[in-house]
Design a protein around this nucleic acid. Structure first.
Lengths: 203, 203
DNA sequence: AAAATAAGTCAACAAGGCTGACATAACTGG
DNA sequence: CCAGTTATGTCAGCCTTGTTGACTTATTTT
């Protein structure tokens, strides 16, 4: 509580404490990030509202579309929310026919998640304005923007998350980096066994 | 609903539609931004929780500290939330002694907001880990990172917000840009007239 | 057969958005 | 000076999306 608030000596990764000028500059950057993220996430709101969905639905649909066959546990890891929070929005997405569940072929306890056709459709429509915004911003940022911004954003996230991020981004951007990684991974290639029947029996 | 989903001709600011590869790359960027922002905003949570505050309190305290003398209306503009939402957290910050209100010297209806000493203190402690994260990320992103990332973030925000952003960032970063702007602006230089007495009379 | 695991569910709660309605004080134009 | 506008505050209630805790069911593992 009453720590020493003078520019203290506790040098971390950075070699020295931040000068007041650096602090002020970085506070400005924080504000830019706040506005950028707010407006970026605001893009799909109109569409979502019509459907009675929120941003949580968008996030779930996004990751399921990006990684078809994702397990519920994977989604919890990615989003870092609780099973109950996820369950609420996931159920709505399943009930409204945007996401479909299959039992895993190896382990039938798992529910592999897939977007339906209308789910893919919706995901595209939701992200479309965001992608345009991103593309324009990268262009506005100058020639080396892609690699610089990518490294910046990667470094902003906690180290624990990096593996997940790497596997997702690298597929398309690895021409920019030195690492050559295996291509897109499918998370379930087994025989489909539709769960709808059993769910409706149970419900 | 049943729009043409083929790579449609509707070219916007960007000269042409996005190829599937570009889309996938940009979706990856969106994910990076999601993780980056989540972890960035997660930094101060521990401190906030101890005080019974949330991120909304941090945002308010941040802007009041950065722009002392801010009016309530300015804050509503910056945060783009309603008076009622702001009122809830602002009241707590005032009641707990982190923010102080003064009537405006020109227009005494206005409540100019100022951080108290403990408010400035708290703001510093909350932002400290975020600034370190930002500084490290900018360094990790390479030599031209500051200017590139700044232009990127500016371009990600809606054009309406840019004036606000510009005035805040430019003070410290304008050595990187061509524009030379007037220095920091004080929003109220009038005689202080403490409102606490009258508020407690009223309450 | 028992234990662990993946998923789902019920209930209750909290933060922080929102709308609508209304009150007060102070300023402003006529 | 009065009427209307403006800046702020507040009450009440609602929604989304997080949280904890407890429990069930199906399935796999030991």
């Amino acid at each position: 509580m009453t720590e020493n608030l003078e520019p203290h000596q506790d040098d971390r990764d950075t070699r020295s404490a931040l000068t007041p000028e650096e602090q002020s500059k970085l506070l400005g950057f924080s504000e830019l990030l706040f506005f950028a993220y707010r407006d970026f996430t605001g893009d799909p709101d109109a569409i979502l509202q019509v459907l009675g969905f929120g941003r949580a639905h968008h996030r779930v649909l996004h990751f399921v579309t990006r990684q078809p066959g994702l397990r519920v546990a994977d989604l919890l890891e990615l989003l870092k929310i609780t099973k109950q929070s996820l369950g609420r929005v996931l159920r709505q997405l399943v009930d409204t026919g945007y996401i479909r569940q299959e039992a895993g072929s190896q382990d039938r306890r798992e529910r592999r998640l897939f977007p339906t056709e209308s789910g893919e459709d919706l995901a595209r429509r939701l992200s479309a304005p965001q992608l345009v915004r991103f593309a324009n911003a990268l262009e506005a940022a100058g020639p080396k923007a892609e690699i610089v911004v990518m490294r910046f954003l990667e470094a902003m996230a906690n180290a624990e998350d990096r593996p997940q991020m790497a596997e997702m981004v690298s597929n398309e951007v690895n021409t920019l980096k030195s690492s050559a990684r295996p291509g897109r991974k499918r998370r379930d290639d087994g025989t489909p066994s539709d769960l709808k029947a059993s769910r409706e029996r149970a419900g």
